[in-house]
């Protein structure tokens, strides 16, 4: 009568289960390269004070090309900019800026998007109608136009950038969550939860949310990459964080006019941001295989 147990219970808790799925990433070399790139930049951000040769805002020798010997006996490996700041040091310190603002902005967009998406998908009806129309409206703006409008109107500061990203990205997150919730809310286990009298809050966050994490993690990686680009673009257009602290986009903006004569000044921050975004995109690709296809 009793059915024989076929598989050993290896995975105990959902979180451990998720972690062990993520660890499958080692089978995707694309994902591993992505993870390595990200680890590289995170390490740089943490160890910036230890490894950066100069203070990022110190003005030393202007217009030095890469490899020039510095007056203190060191070398400007990546050269200096037009007012003599060491580009290597600024790229390293700039990692901190981007790795603080991009994840913060993305997280805040997710927090809002998830709550709105759960509400729209679970309650449906007028709640869904209102939220979906609003997100359609935001998403109908060309995204950069929206950022420019917000920054021009409210001024550029770290907080405003985070708020702008949240405002512009949360509707996208909401749409994804809503779609997933609409699929899950008709499953029988949700009916079972309703039948034992669970509150909507419990059902949304305990019964539904854990089951949408796979697609959300993958989307989160891609979106983080896109937010990184956005912050870079704003800096590049001169709408980013106020100087003088190093920010990759800002560095490109400041030296852009000299790009034809001294390309190295803008080139290295460009390569930095591209490799970070590439890392995120590759990681997302690897995670997609591991979390969604399995």
């Amino acid at each position: 009568m009793t059915e024989v147990i076929s598989k050993p219970a290896t995975r105990r808790l959902p979180l451990v289960g998720l972690l062990s799925r993520v660890l499958l990433l080692r089978e995707s070399w694309v994902g591993m390269i992505g993870a390595a790139l990200i680890v590289f930049w995170v390490l740089l951000a943490f160890t910036a004070p230890l490894i950066s040769p100069y203070h990022p805002n110190a003005t030393l020798v202007p217009y030095a090309v890469p490899g020039t010997a510095a007056p203190d006996g060191g070398t400007f490996w990546l050269g200096t900019d037009h007012i003599g700041r060491d580009i290597l040091s600024r790229v390293i310190w700039g990692t901190r800026t981007v790795l603080v603002y991009a994840p913060l902005a993305t997280l805040s967009a997710y927090a809002l998007g998830i709550v709105l998406g759960l509400a729209a998908g679970y309650y449906r009806g007028w709640m869904d109608e209102v939220l979906s129309r609003f997100s359609d409206l935001v998403l109908s703006f060309p995204v950069l136009v929206l950022y420019i409008l917000i920054i021009v109107r409210f001024g550029s500061s770290g907080l405003n950038i985070i708020l702008a990203v949240t405002f512009a990205s949360a509707p996208g997150v909401m749409r994804i969550v809503r779609g997933l919730v609409l699929d899950i809310r008709d499953r029988d286990y949700i009916a079972a939860a309703q039948m034992r009298g669970e509150s909507p809050w419990y059902i949304m966050f305990v019964e539904i949310l854990p089951n949408v994490r796979g697609p959300l993690i993958v989307d989160g990686c891609l979106r983080l990459g896109y937010v990184t680009i956005t912050i870079g673009v704003l800096g590049f257009l001169g709408l980013g964080l106020p100087p003088p602290d190093p920010d990759w986009g800002g560095m490109i903006n400041e030296t852009r006019s000299m790009a034809m004569a001294f390309p190295h000044m803008a080139l290295f921050p460009c390569l930095a941001i591209s490799s970070l975004v590439l890392g995120l995109n590759l990681l997302a690709d690897g995670l997609r295989e591991v979390l969604l296809d399995a």
């Binding site: 808790l13 959902p14 029988d188 286990y189 009916a191 079972a192 039948m195 854990p210 089951n211």
Partner: peptide, 28 residues
């Protein structure tokens, strides 16, 4: 179901059709 007493909820329960949808995949 929201307006049923606990005793009523307890008194009527259901077994569903699809084994795959009946249990929350995230919960033990």
């Amino acid at each position: 179901v929201n307006r049923r007493t606990k005793a009523l909820k307890r008194a009527i329960q259901m077994v569903f059709q699809h084994p795959d949808g009946t249990l929350n995949p995230s919960h033990t």
